[in-house]
Design a protein around this nucleic acid. Structure first.
Length: 878
RNA sequence: GGGGAAGUGGCGGAAUCGGCAGACGCAGCGGACUUAAAAUCCGCAGACCCAACAGGUCGUGAGGGUUCGAGUCCCUCCUUCCCCA
């Protein structure tokens, strides 16, 4: 440790000295500049000068933001403040901390923003990232800014393309005709999130799903591993459940039905092969290709039904409560449970939109006796219902007019009659396998990932189409395939990609042959599928990252972001990481060891009697009620998420301008546990501002010109631990213990409450505070309010940043008291309190407690005594 | 529709293992300082009964249960928020 010097009030020669009042703006500006100039938060990579391989690493990562045009609000910041507190403390625990930040800059919103403002997406992105960076820096976040990255930078997406090539080479990328949303009015392909209830989000025009050739990534090939490996990572159980649910593994059988009058076999998947004997009809999805074989008599009816279904979303189609619709196709199938020629096996084939082409095989065998939707469908269209599972005696079945979907005993099912459902399934599969008409199969709800967009602002595919129809990847040496500048980058009227119009860019050659570039671009998720790896080695021009850097930094130790990304981003990221693991490019098979979800910051919004929203600055509080300032009209206060449309967005810039960044950070942490959703209440911020002021005054006397209060000066000798100083020592140790505890679940509100309690005590016994205590107070407060603490640290005489000072250790002997206060209960009710020595035995506690509750014991006999050591004694009386 | 999270004073929230409910902060009230106000400092503060003290009763979304003892565990129900389709 450097020897403390007397504080001059200046950090650098020529800088004006600060006054003794707490001036957040000046202090914050000074220290942010200091951190920048001294690269205080730079993380060293293996091989760099000064790198110490013995130092433990800690990689703490935020979900990087999408730099929108509206800037950062305090809800984004809460997670960043949380990880920053962790990063700062880890540094003080001696870790080499990787804490980077970057921009997820490709994607639809940036493109739409650019279209609206008439700017180029690249330019809009530059402006927005500049604004985000400025905002983040003002909060005093300890990022290693030298590692900043931007997914729309060719130096970054070169490697996104490079990784895509590896997927392509492994056969994990393929093209397929899949239904995508098409809006006739807007003449464009829309993404799922742009379509609400079958209408375009903008303009509210009707949309239909129509098949288009798209790039797909075979994430289903990793379904089993994505499921299994959830066991080995430290993630919230709720997120794991959501991922498991999304992957949706189900065991069952695939069964082939002969289609009458054709050579076709209709293959279906079922989780209940034991109910095959109850299959009385079949249903095809409206997109099923067997519909081409519909006999002419039914063709018109089927085609009109299919057209109708195309305009519905999957939600509308599959909703259980909804009235079932469907049309008979005129085709019949043979149920393989029955001998050929057995009339019971001849079953009609229908088409209905509650069956989805994208799930299973796009066709089902319908067992109306034991499936709710099939049951409703059969009732509506008068189809046969056959009971093949006998419910357990306490459950209702078909005899009671109820469709029984649970497990029971097989009946009316020939060879499997009398078997319990589990065995019946197994036996049914054996029978099907032996006859070559079916087999056991596992399916997943997870579908392959639609990976292309007919949009401009994304990574171009590094692929070439040759004249013979074959597709080849461009050479690694030709990467990146840069996005060509385009004046007009709007989607084309025929649904083709905008890049198709960049003729000079599309036409190229491959080994002397003419070739066309692929004109689709990757979806918004692509760049975020590997960015944590690039942060490890962000300026490597030879490779996406070096082996040494990945070996040292991987995996991410703590990943923090909103639960909104529970499924999509986290599943895609895990998928890519596993592919990279299989290629030997990373050494762990999971990217994020610990995941933590921050809660949503909500805000108050105000509604008048008609439900109309009133901007917060037009609202006045009267006691516990709220009124419109201009009219006095009563308003209702509601809590919702922050949104422009609700007129309740809070910008951190404004909070910093009024109170300073340290107060913002403190309030964000003090509001409640990081995981909880909680409302922003501007009224509460003052408590945090006051706390900082009082902390400052604990150490600095604003009335004097001294750097610190005289008793805290360097030249003061150590103070004996006795009297009030000893009492403060216990309080401080206790506070530090509570702070340490708060880092387990990130409930920093309790850490700050502990600091406040200590401050209250220390203010009362001001003269007893020792220099050592003041130093430790500054150190443990510093992750929360780093600027002020740096300033105090330098006033205490240190010339170097406190960023890597040692975190104070808790000495357990200060945490225990010699006497304990014991609660005395009679019959479970609190009746008194008594102080006993900490090592008192039961008899001693009883003896001490009885007089305290004598009036409650009078005339009663004690039948039992319950003693909780150190806490409570309970007399049970009769 | 499916999935997830959560219900504690006027508000945000606290409370290892089941053991003093309401720490800490905001707002509120009272006092000190001040010509006055702001700021600051000190104090009070869940609801109810009681003139008041003393004292008591109720109280963690609702109802039941387990237990000497339940905010915490179990069952049933209600409400809110978030996500996906």
């Amino acid at each position: 440790m450097l020897r403390p010097k007397l504080y001059s009030g200046r950090l650098q020669a020529g800088e004006p000295a600060l006054s003794n009042a707490y001036d957040a703006a000046r202090i914050e500006q000074r220290w942010q500049r200091h951190w920048d100039e001294h690269h205080t938060f730079a993380a060293l990579n293996p091989g760099e000068p000064g790198f110490d391989p013995a130092q433990p690493k800690y990689y703490v990562l935020d979900m990087f933001p999408y730099p929108s045009g509206s800037g950062l609000h305090v809800g984004h910041a809460v997670g960043y403040v949380g990880t920053d507190i962790v990063a700062r403390r880890k540094r003080m625990e001696g870790c080499n901390v990787l804490h980077p930040m970057g921009w997820d800059a490709f994607g639809l919103p940036a493109e739409q923003y650019a279209i609206q403002t008439g700017a180029q997406p690249s330019e809009a992105t530059r402006v927005n990232t500049d604004n985000f960076r400025r905002q983040l820096k003002k909060i005093g976040l300890s990022y290693d800014w030298a590692r900043e990255l931007n997914t729309s930078d060719p130096r970054y997406y070169k490697w996104t393309q490079w990784i895509f090539k590896r997927l392509f080479e492994k056969g994990l990328a393929y093209q397929a005709e899949v239904p995508v949303w098409w809006c006739e009015e807007l003449k464009t392909v829309l993404a799922n999130e742009e379509v609400i209830n079958g209408r375009s989000e903008r303009g509210n025009h009707p949309c239909v799903r129509r098949p288009l050739k798209q790039w797909m990534l075979k994430i289903t090939a990793y379904a089993e591993r994505l499921l299994e490996d959830l066991e080995h990572i430290d993630w919230p159980e709720s997120i794991k459940i959501q991922q498991r649910e999304w992957i949706g593994r189900s065991e069952g059988a695939e069964i082939a039905f002969e289609v009458e009058g054709t050579n076709e076999r209709l293959v279906v998947f079922t989780t209940r092969p034991d109910t095959l004997w109850g299959a009385t009809f079949m249903v095809l999805a409206p997109e099923h290709k067997l519909l081409a074989r519909v006999p002419s008599a039914q063709r018109a009816a089927v085609e009109s039904y299919v057209a109708q279904a195309a305009s519905k979303s999957e939600l509308e189609r599959t909703e259980l409560s909804k009235e079932k619709s469907g049309v008979f196709t005129g085709l019949f199938a043979h149920n393989p449970a029955f001998e050929p020629g057995d009339a019971r096996g001849r079953i009609p084939i229908w088409v209905a939109d509650y069956v989805l082409i994208s799930y299973g095989t796009g066709a089902i065998m319908s067992v109306p006796g034991h499936d709710q939707r099939d049951f409703e469908f059969a009732r509506k269209f008068g189809l046969e219902v056959r009971e093949v599972v006998k419910p357990p005696s306490n459950e209702k079945g078909l005899a009671d007019g109820v469709c029984f979907t649970g497990e029971g005993t097989a009946l009316n099912s020939g060879p499997i009659d009398g078997l319990a459902t589990a065995q019946a399934k197994r036996r049914a599969i054996e029978l099907l396998e032996s006859r070559g008409v079916g087999q056991a199969r596992v399916t997943y709800k997870l579908r392959d990932w639609l990976f292309s967009r007919q949009r401009y602002w994304g990574e171009p595919f590094p692929l070439l189409h040759l004249d013979d129809g074959s597709i080849v990847a461009v050479d690694d040496s030709a990467l990146p395939v840069e996005l060509p500048p385009m004046e007009d980058f709007k989607p084309s009227a025929d649904g083709s990609a905008p890049l198709a119009r960049a003729q000079g860019w599309v036409r190229t050659t491959h080994q002397g042959r003419s070739a066309r570039r692929d004109t689709d671009t990757m979806p918004g998720w692509a760049g975020s599928c590997w960015y944590w790896l690039r942060f490890m080695d962000p300026s490597n021009a030879q490779a996406p990252w070096s082996r040494a850097a990945e070996h040292y930094w991987g995996p991410v130790d703590l990943y923090v972001g909103g639960a909104a990304h529970a499924v999509m981003h986290l599943l895609y990221a895990r998928f890519w990481h596993k592919v990279l693991f299989d290629l030997g490019l990373v050494h762990t098979n999971e990217p994020f060891q610990r995941l933590f979800n921050q809660g949503l910051i909500t805000a108050f919004a105000y509604q008048d009697a008609t439900g109309r929203l009133v901007a917060s600055d037009e609202v006045e509080s009267r006691g516990n009620n709220f009124v419109r300032r201009a009219t006095g009209e009563p308003l209702e206060q509601i809590v919702t998420k922050m949104a422009k449309s609700l007129k309740n967005v809070v910008n951190p810039d404004d909070v910093i301008a009024e109170y300073g960044a340290d107060t913002l950070r403190l309030y964000e942490s003090f509001m409640g546990p990081l995981a909880d959703s909680k409302p922003w209440n501007p009224r509460d911020i003052t408590g945090c501002a006051r706390f900082l002021e009082r902390s400052w005054r604990l150490i600095v006397d604003p009335e004097s010109g001294d750097a610190v209060r005289p008793q805290l000066r360097v030249d003061q000798g150590a103070r004996a631990l006795e009297g009030d100083t000893l009492e403060l020592e216990k309080q401080l140790q206790r506070a530090i213990a509570r702070i340490d505890e708060s880092f387990k679940q990130f409930n920093f509100n309790t850490a700050i409450a502990a600091l406040m309690s200590f401050l209250n005590e220390a203010s009362k016994r001001h003269a007893a505070l020792s220099r050592s205590q003041a130093e430790r107070y500054v150190l443990v407060l510093s992750p929360f309010a780093p600027h002020m603490c740096e300033e105090l640290w330098s006033r205490l005489g240190y010339t170097r940043s406190l960023a890597r000072e040692r975190w104070p250790a808790v000495e357990p002997e200060f945490l225990v008291d010699d006497t304990l206060e014991i609660v005395v209960q009679v019959a479970g009710k609190l009746r008194g309190k008594v102080a006993v020595p900490k090592d008192a035995d039961q008899a001693a506690v009883e003896a001490a407690a009885k007089p305290a509750v004598a009036s409650w014991l009078e005339g009663k006999s004690v039948v039992k005594v319950v003693l909780v050591p150190g806490r409570l004694i309970n007399f049970i009386v009769k």
